[in-house]
Every structure is written in structure tokens, then in C-alpha cells.
Design a protein around this nucleic acid. Structure first.
Lengths: 232, 232
DNA sequence: TCACTGTCAAGAGCGGTGCTCTCGTTTATC
DNA sequence: GATAAACGAGAGCACCGCTCTTGACAGTGA
């Protein structure tokens, strides 16, 4: 009874997996706007209406792809960090930066889905919040561990963030306990700059301007490491 | 004969203006993907096919909106810079940053069209290159003038960019003549960080994380000013 | 004055989209 | 074995970008 129920549900889960796989492939070739439930159904040899048994709307399919994407980039970042010596914080920072860029270049449309323009009419449900912060936890951990080991030596430069920012600083600080507020603000700069560079490269802002993107990325991420005060 | 021809061309230009105006309004409510020539035609009391007399394809209409958008943000940045005392370089930098953010918040869909995910299947023609760099010229001028006045004191931090980046540095340096390569690289960081922050705010990455966006933006742009070495 | 030329709005039509509804069938449970 | 849920299939609605053809009209040169 339990086995038979699982039998039906297993084929259902398998179909859902197949749908998301095909959808992800379509996303890679057509982009988010070109993602078509009919096309996915066609490729599965299904009639278009049948697919609504598994995803009640196009947005629900998009949500699945978004959660999947956040997990993919999060996993890439985690692996890159894990492959580095624990005490080499600069190397760990550079590794996770590279992991983000490499993943983005390998999955440009998925990256655009996660970090590009919001899909019009689509409202991200709460399920996406958790996976969305999976990568940021890693950045925070690197900074926090460097701070704990006394290896965080940020050059004096930025003023203390104003008091009105305290709750936000506090919220970000939960990912890097103990780190001074000034450095937390720098972490936000580094975070936005990392994705700013990747987005500019992917979205065409570097066209006709920057040619050696990998090298510039590497150099700028190294500068950001100095800004954060990472050493060694 | 010339007058009559201009009469005809004048009504044509007026119609093109009306089309782009309506299209821009539709862009604001529906997003780039939802921009529909039929809907624009409907609102003009025109039949759908007639609009193809003025814009041969949806992409051509998009191109017009993109060029228009780049010019709008460029103009906003120019005006913000012009309103500052020439010798107050930090203030000028903060003013142009604010101008970008304010324009983006006021025209989120247009911003997404310019700096967000590329529209699938759309290839930006060469006409967009010029207007696209209108704002960057202003950033470059502020840094260049600060350098010329001896008011650029970048804190020692970033290493000299590697030799392989020389052509790119040189290309960016045309917008800020005389500025050292190290600072040119920092300018790229500041540039990407500025748009990275605006994009994160607009595209929802700050949701559930940062609440006081204006204040954080202000503080981080001030940090970037220090990174650039702007003083006074 | 008149025929010519180029521009235009209009309509029909093609193949595509997301989504809904109904219908008969299969499948699992009581 | 009856019942209820899940399912695939098909038709249909309103929309989309885009194309082709047709007839009306304005400006132009002979």
C-alpha cells in the first residue's frame, strides 16, 4: 500500500524531474521569456494541457528553476571554498568569486534568471529565500573565520556606518558573527561588486570596453580582498 | 515641393514620437517582455499592421527605447555633476551615483532594459554604443579632473594591474587621461559596484536583507570615493 | 489636367503562446 | 469489486509577432 502509493508518486516525481530538466535546457537556449510549457510538453511527447497536472502554471515551473539555480551556484561556491586550505582566506575568497563567475559563464540564462531583471508578472515565493542565501553564507563564513583567527586587517578607509544602518548591519552580521560594522559594510560592497562585475560581463556592458575579462575579474577581486582586509 | 515633403515627414516623426512614448509607458507597466506592438497600435487607434510602417520590427522599437534610455540616464548624470562645485570631487561623485540610483528607481523597467538581462533574441545594434557610454564619460571626467588638480590620493592597497590588462586599462583611460593604471582599475570596481548595488536593490537581491537602501547606498558610495582616492 | 508613384490603414491569415474546460481512461484505495 | 483521485487527450479562448494583399490617398511631373 505504501509501496504502491510510492510507485505512482515515483513516476510523478520522475516526470517532474524530466520536465525541469527539459525546461532548464530550453532556458539555456531560449532564455526565460522564451520558456514555453507547450514546447516542453511537445518534447516530452505530451499534450500541452497534461503538463498542468505537474506545474499549475508557468510561474511554478520558473520557481522550481530558480530554486534549483540558487542551489547550483550555492553548491559551486561551497565546493570551491572547501577545496582551499582553511587558513588561506584570500585564496578562499578568490576561489568563491571564480566559482560564481565560472558558473555564471556556464549557465548564463540561469544566472540571468537569478540575478538579472525580474521576470515581469512573476512574484518569487518565500521558498526561494533560503536557497538564495546559500552562497552568501559562504562569503560570510570566510570573513568571519578570518576575523576570528585575527587575520582580518582592513585598511583604515571607510567611516563607521551611520546609526540608522544598525539593523541592516546586524542582519548581515548574522552571517559573519563578531565582524566590525565597518567591515560588514565593506562585505556588502564586495558582494555587490562581485555580482556587478559578473552581470556587466554577461549582460554586455563590457562589450567594446573590456576584453580580458578573466584577468580584470581576478585583479579586481584581489583588490576587494584587500579592501576586506583579508591577508594570507 | 520641399515643404510638402517635410509636411509628410513631420507627421511621420510625430507618430514615431507618439509610438515610442506609448511604448515606454507600456514598458513601465508590463516590462520589456510584455512590450507588444499590437497593444501600442491599439492604444493609438491604429490597426496592428500599420505600426510596421514606422518600426519594421519589435526589436527596432526596443532599440529606440534603449537609445532613449541611455540618453536619459546620461543626461541625469550630467545634470547632477553640473550642479556641484567643480572642485568638490567627492560631492560630484556622490551626486552622479545618486543620480543613477534615483533615475533607476524612477524608471525601473527602463533600467532593467539597459542594465538587466539581455532581451532574448535581441542583438543591440551599433547605434547604442555611443549613448551607452554617455554616463561613464562623466565618471571619468570627475576622476581625471581630480587627478589633474592633484586631489587624487588613492590609499595604497591594490597592486599594479598585470601587463595583460594594459590594452583594457588604456581603453578605459581614454575617459580619464593621465590617471594611473591602478586607479583606472579601481574606477572599474567603483563603476561595477555602483551598478551592482542599484541592480541588487531593483532586482530584489536586497529583499529580506537590507531595508535602509538609500542610507547603505550613500555610505557605500562614500567608501568607494575613498577607494578612488577622491578628497574634498 | 491627368496619369503615375509612393505612402498609408486595413484586413485576413499563419503559427505560436498561457491557460481552462470537458471527457473518457487508468490507477490506487477502501 | 466499487469509488474516488489522478491522468492524458482534445477543443477552445484570447493573446502575441509578423506577413501579404488590397484599396484609398497625396504629391509630382508631363
Amino acid at each position: 500500500m505504501n509501496a504502491s502509493r510510492t510507485a505512482r508518486e515515483r513516476v510523478r516525481a520522475e516526470l517532474i524531474r524530466e520536465i525541469t530538466d527539459i525546461a532548464r535546457r530550453h532556458l539555456a537556449t531560449e532564455g526565460a521569456a522564451g520558456l514555453s510549457l507547450r514546447a516542453v510538453a511537445r518534447e516530452m511527447g505530451m499534450v500541452s494541457s497534461a503538463i498542468y497536472r505537474y506545474f499549475p502554471s508557468r510561474d511554478d515551473l520558473l520557481t522550481a528553476l530558480i530554486i534549483n539555480g540558487y542551489n547550483a551556484v550555492g553548491e559551486a561556491v561551497e565546493k570551491a571554498d572547501a577545496a582551499c586550505p582553511r587558513e588561506d582566506f584570500t585564496r578562499r575568497w578568490l576561489a568563491v568569486c571564480r566559482a560564481v563567475r565560472d558558473w555564471a559563464l556556464a549557465h548564463p540564462h540561469e544566472y540571468a534568471l537569478l540575478y538579472g531583471s525580474p521576470v515581469p508578472g512573476y512574484r518569487a515565493p518565500a521558498d526561494t529565500i533560503g536557497p538564495a542565501s546559500r552562497d552568501t553564507i559562504v562569503y560570510g563564513r570566510i570573513i568571519a573565520e578570518a576575523h576570528r583567527e585575527g587575520r582580518l586587517a582592513p585598511p583604515p578607509m571607510c567611516p563607521e556606518p551611520p546609526a540608522v544602518l544598525s539593523p541592516d548591519i546586524e542582519a548581515v552580521r548574522t552571517m559573519m558573527p563578531g565582524v566590525p560594522g565597518d567591515v560588514v559594510a565593506r562585505a556588502v560592497i564586495a558582494w555587490t561588486s562581485l555580482f556587478g562585475m559578473v552581470s556587466f560581463e554577461l549582460f554586455g556592458q563590457f562589450n567594446n570596453v573590456i576584453e580580458h575579462r578573466a584577468e580584470l575579474f581576478e585583479h579586481n577581486m584581489a583588490c576587494l580582498a584587500r579592501l576586506l582586509g583579508l591577508s594570507g
